[in-house]
Amino acid sequence: MSEAHLGTPLVLGTPVAEFEPRPPRRVGGYRPDTAVDGWSGGTFAARAASVRGYQHRHDGTPRQDDFAVSWHEGTGAVVAAVADGVSSVELAHLGATLACRSATDQLLRVLDAGEEPDWPEVMRCAGWALVEFAAAQAGDDDPSARAERLLSTTLLVALVRPRADGSAHAEMCRVGDSTGWVFDAGTWTRLTQESPGIAEVATVALPHLPRDLRAESVDLPAGSVLLLGTDGVGAALGDGAGLVGAAFAEALGTPPPPLEFARLLDFSRETFDDDRTLLGVWSGLGR
């Protein structure tokens, strides 16, 4: 048996069965198992990681989650996005990447122009990026239908702007089941509620837009962290109570080194084997 390991995961409760990950099927280009980013800009620090779920590692499926995060120097703002490509479509991973990057690029252009974001327009542009990409793929269906068939993805986008007192203000808009949290002074606040009852698998996804699409707004005290996560994180973290919330709370009070952030996200916990993406923006640093 091979001694090769990606590293020992952090175990929370009962671990997932041990196995060596299979290489992802090569569809639509190269896709690394894990993506990590981290930096500080102005009064913010950002950390982000996207890890392939244990089920996808076991099956040889590419990571279908992704993120994008950038700093806008002119305004000191952070633009951030997380996305979860819909597994049943062939290029879900590319859909997630396209949606994150086009939404954050769009927000940066809005900030460059000194304008306020038109959130439905930002989401429509992200959806249209899928349509344009789909139009270049094989198929004789309408490009929008092809985008839905090949590239469907959820998307959660945030614009975080600093205030003079070190606090910050975030606007967020989402299509689908990703979640935001604020972790402040040891307390979790989940920004979206889940419905009780039978757990649902289906989610709204781009290139579809909810008709009642709106941005949500949240104040971020200095020292707090805004976290954006895909449902692979949301299912495990919930409202922050429990083992996962405790482990995150212990590690995320201040921005950890990016690779530690990724290792935290890659925790092993039985039955939690979906792809996971988590993006944190800490406010009021370096003051």
Binding site: Q55, V89, C125, W128, F133, T203, H208
Partner: peptide, 28 residues
């Protein structure tokens, strides 16, 4: 873990027109 698409045609609309502010600048 498959996060299927919800079938909720009455609550969603498909993007079928190029938005006026759209810029394709993504290279994945």
């Amino acid at each position: 873990v498959a996060s299927a698409r919800a079938v909720a045609a009455d609550k969603t609309e498909l993007v079928v027109e190029r938005p006026s502010s759209f810029v394709m600048a993504v290279d994945v």
